[in-house]
């Protein structure tokens, strides 16, 4: 199969790219398109755009932003999450030039419709989002709309495998906290659910080596860290021991 991926994440809030800490505190960074262009130029394997206030404020996906973004001719695969709440939203987002979508709150409200979407877009286009934590030795799903933590059932996760290709495991408590991704989230999920996973939230280069050695981890998603230095993705790739990734390539135009 294909190589494992290093995904660059851009978090957007109120139209601005932000540096996020625990999805709770935010430091404005500026125009998200500039960050996306940088990740494209630096050769990210995919770019994840998380528009985090769209679901919370019931705004739907930001189509104006996506249409504007398409004019910048980004040549890296794009993943978009934010406010997608029905199949029409999802299809429109893809048509604006997005290859894959992230579904979060919609999953809780209408699973059958997500199933229908999967039969339209194909499950490879769908990623399901799981902000998780561990409480009393049990994995808990965090619903950021009602601030509640709930258990996740095996039957639900089995169904999930039929409708989506990967789950985005977010260590939301450690997001923005460098090097503190809680690997127990993966260790606890793995034996039970056997799903392809993308790990996200406070991951350091040292942790990437360990995470990529896990068969079911198909990609690592990194936010803040990549923005600090020109070509940071390529420098990161150069430093990794795991060679099942697309190798670094330093070019003016990737």
């Amino acid at each position: 199969m294909a190589t494992k991926r290093i995904i660059g994440a851009v978090i957007i809030k109120d139209g601005l790219a932000v540096q996020s800490f625990n999805f709770n505190n935010y430091l404005p960074l500026g125009d998200p398109i500039i960050l996306i262009e940088n990740l494209d130029r630096w050769g990210a394997d995919e770019i994840l755009i998380l528009d985090i206030d769209r679901s919370r404020n019931n705004l739907g996906p930001n189509f104006d932003f996506l249409e504007n973004l398409s004019k910048f001719k980004i040549k890296t695969p794009l993943i978009y999450g934010g406010g997608i709440k029905n199949k029409f939203d999802a299809i429109d987002v893809v048509q604006k030039g997005i290859e894959r979508i992230v579904i979060d709150q919609w999953l809780n409200s209408n699973f059958n419709e997500v199933k229908e979407l999967s039969s339209i877009l194909g499950r490879q286009a769908i990623i399901t989002c799981f902000p998780l934590s561990i409480k009393k030795d049990e994995i808990k799903y965090y619903n950021y709309l009602n601030y509640k933590h709930t258990s996740i059932s095996k039957s639900f996760m089995t169904d999930l495998k039929k409708v989506s290709s990967e789950i985005l495991v977010i260590d939301y408590k450690n997001e923005g906290s460098f090097g503190n991704f809680n690997v127990d989230l993966i260790n606890k999920l793995l034996p039970v659910y056997n799903l392809e996973m993308i790990a996200f939230g406070g991951i350091s280069p040292q942790q990437i080596n360990n995470l990529l050695s896990i068969k079911e981890i198909s990609a690592i998603c990194i936010g803040n860290y990549l923005n600090y230095k020109e070509h940071n993705i390529q420098l990161l790739k150069q430093s990794l021991k795991n060679k099942n990734i697309r190798p670094e390539k330093f070019l003016k135009e990737i």
Partner: peptide, 15 residues
């Protein structure tokens, strides 16, 4: 055919 990442393809050929 009302499916696909049309904008991305359109813009790459424009470029």
């Amino acid at each position: 055919y009302s499916l696909g990442n049309i904008y991305a393809i359109k813009n790459i050929f424009l470029s």
